[in-house]
Design a protein around this nucleic acid. Sequence first.
DNA 1: GCCAACGTTGGC
DNA 2: GCCAACGTTGGC
Length: 156
Amino acid sequence: MNYWLMKSEPEEVSIDDALAANGATVPWFGVRNYTARNFMRDRMRIGDGVLFYHSSCAVPGIYGVAEVASEPYPDDTQFDPQSPYYDPKSSQDKPRWILVDVRALYKVDPPLTLAQLRQMPELAGMTVLARGNRLSITPVDPEHWQRLIERMKKAA
DNA sequence: GCCAACGTTGGC
DNA sequence: GCCAACGTTGGC
């Protein structure tokens, strides 16, 4: 079993949106980065743990816990000329971009903010905290996952 | 294959 | 809105 941190802009899909969805399951559309795509394609399995991270917002941080809920499959937004995620170089025959469904399990309230994460020495080396990190999907060490879950329970 | 230019991400 | 960091593109 693997653990992941997945970023979403809450204006697009927030943890509340995900929890309100049918089955609390949302397709993680819009990934257009090869490293992130390859994580989904090669290493994600159904049931993997997911930290639901809000980015590009007033208070970035972890807002929920989720799980991987599907095998990877083609991201339809790449075929839609109306979509901001449209990719004219992709084709139905050979889709370039894929996604997985993610099931929201619970909300982290209050959120565990990026500022707080930076103050946890036990998270040293966590990818999302690295300087200049822009990757929207990053692996999370099992040990880091453990510490984070404990911390979130304590704060709840 | 190199690398400059450009576009995007995302915290602040 | 600013800007640092990074990924991608495209000329050569």
